[in-house]
Computed example of a mutant assay.
Amino acid sequence: MGELCIHSVLVTGANRGIGLGLVRHFLGMSNPPKWVFAGCRDPKGQKAQELQNLASKHPNLVIIPLEVTDPASIKAAAARVEEQLGGSGLNLLINNAGIAKPSPLDNETLENMTCVYTTNTVAPLLLSQAFLPLLKKAAQGSPGSALSCSKAAIVNMSSSAGSIEEVYLWDYGQVVSYRCSKAALNMLTKCQSLGYREHGVLCVALHPGWVRTDMTGGSESLTAPLTVDESVRGMLKVLSSLSEKETGTFLDWEGKVVPW
Results as ranks from 00 to 15, higher is better:
C191W: 03
K44M: 13
L22S: 01
K190G: 00
N15Q: 08
G218C: 07
L251T: 06
W35L: 09
A48H: 02
Y196D: 13
K101F: 09
T119K: 00
S160F: 01
K190S: 08
I164W: 01
L251M: 13
C149Y: 02
E82A: 15
L202F: 04
T227A: 10
I164P: 00
V238D: 02
G195T: 09
S159H: 05
M215W: 06
E67Y: 00
L126D: 06
T114D: 13
S243R: 15
M187I: 07
R41H: 11
L90A: 05
K182Y: 04
K182Q: 09
A224P: 14
G209Y: 02
L147T: 04
K256F: 07
P71G: 04
S103A: 14
P225W: 11
T249H: 11
N120M: 10
G234K: 06
D171Q: 11
C40F: 09
E244T: 15
N95L: 09
A79W: 03
I99V: 14
A72I: 04
A97G: 07
Q52D: 09
S163F: 13
E230Q: 15
I154H: 04
A138L: 08
E83G: 09
E165I: 11
E254N: 15
G28W: 07
D214N: 12
K151H: 02
M1R: 13
A205V: 05
A77G: 04
A72C: 08
S221I: 01
V68L: 03
W170S: 08
V176K: 06
L110F: 14
S221G: 07
K57E: 13
T223C: 05
